[in-house]
Nucleic acid binder design. Structure first.
Lengths: 222, 222
DNA sequence: ACGGAACCGGATAGCCCTTTCCGGTTCGGC
DNA sequence: GCCGAACCGGAAAGGGCTATCCGGTTCCGT
């Protein structure tokens, strides 16, 4: 595991350390949600009311902090897929999932950044991402089978939606908080069968992964 | 005029100054095209083979440099609208314009950033933006009248497309250079009549402008 | 209630950014 | 070919970022 200091079994922390750790994670959650992953570690420390050194002692790098903060959002991500698979209507499940995920991006700019990047060092995140992706493939299959989803829809199109939506969310953020809804509605309608025409080929999976890697280490957009 | 030093009539520059100014603009064009507006002034100076001070003597701020570099791209932007208006097929003109502009974004990451920001101090840019927007309104009207464009398409949707596409271009950039084509194709199909369903209301114009303002002064994304 | 390990946080290093300052150099009119 | 004005570019100021160092403090077992 790469998440060194925050292993559940590592040996109990002293009470003050435990308390500070909780404060830091909670503060980071608030700060990242508001400002995206571009928020500085100093701002997190300030929000938490601890010194910078304390923050870096608990999380050796910013990426470690991100992994700790967004583990449960990634759980919600997986849960959203499962819920969608439980929907008896495959098309409603499919569209509901996309809307739900994009809504999560709009509600948490940090999470929007997380979904469009890859953190190979943070296994906790990547395993959940893989699980969700796997479920989404099933969602695609069922929606196509039901005849509501266009046949040439590709799994890579989800990444495209997430990137586009992250762009709108990071851009419009607080000023135009509902702009993303219209974009997502448009995209969903473009996915619906019958298609209005053919499409260019989707990008290659490994190339997309490569691009998400580049977005990882560095911080999110300004 | 806010473009102080680069006025055409200001009084002729000395030959070496004139030469350096040309080098700087050409270098900035290359650097911004490759790296987006986030590129540093130092990298521009290095590419131009001049000192940093020389760069800042010719362009008091980064924004001044941006305005000088992208004036002609904005001309191409206006030209694209005019060409589209010349198309006898309103729908072909409409879709061709969107594709052309998005292609310009993909070919020049700096321009992609310029299109999704506003620089109130750079009148040269803003006047052209306004002209293009005005032409686009006419393009919308004709395309709706022809029955190919959905009735609830709003002019703000162009901004949405530009932002979403800039997100994909800045994200996928060199790694997945054609990813944007699929996104744009999808969006165009979603604009085509008959619509697959209703849409949420478009964002308010002034709110969008406000958001573009925020994206202006600061540099582009990483 | 005491001693040492664990923990704290401010100051600091090192890097990148935009913008300014200033001593040295080059141009170009005479 | 000389000389002043215009111009050059490196160095530095001022700010932000991640990450580390170290002297002082707090916890907790005994």
């Amino acid at each position: 595991m790469t998440t060194g200091p925050q292993q559940p079994d590592a040996q109990p922390l002293r009470s003050d350390a435990e308390r500070n750790r909780g404060r830091i994670v909670a503060a980071a959650r608030r700060v990242f949600e508001r400002d995206g992953l571009g928020a500085s570690m100093a701002s997190v420390a300030r929000e938490a009311g601890v010194g910078i050194a304390t923050l870096f002692r608990h999380f050796r790098t910013k990426e470690d902090l991100i992994a700790a903060v967004f583990a449960d959002r990634m759980d919600a991500y997986v849960t959203a897929v499962d819920d969608a698979l439980d929907d008896p209507d495959p098309w409603a499940g499919f569209t509901g999932f996309i809307e739900a995920v994009c809504a999560m991006q709009a509600a948490d700019r940090g999470f929007a950044d997380v979904l469009t990047a890859t953190f190979p060092a943070a296994e906790a995140l990547e395993q959940r991402r893989a699980a969700a992706y796997h479920g989404f493939l099933e969602l695609i299959a069922r929606a196509k089978e039901s005849g509501h989803l266009r046949e040439d829809f590709a799994s890579q199109d989800l990444v495209l939606v997430l990137i586009a939506n992250a762009g709108v969310v990071n851009f419009a953020g607080d000023t135009v908080p509902d702009a993303w809804r219209r974009l997502v509605a448009l995209l969903i309608q473009s996915f619906q069968a019958p298609a209005h025409g053919p499409l260019p080929d989707p990008p290659a999976d490994d190339a997309l992964y490569e691009a998400m890697l580049r977005a990882g280490p560095g911080a999110g957009p300004a």
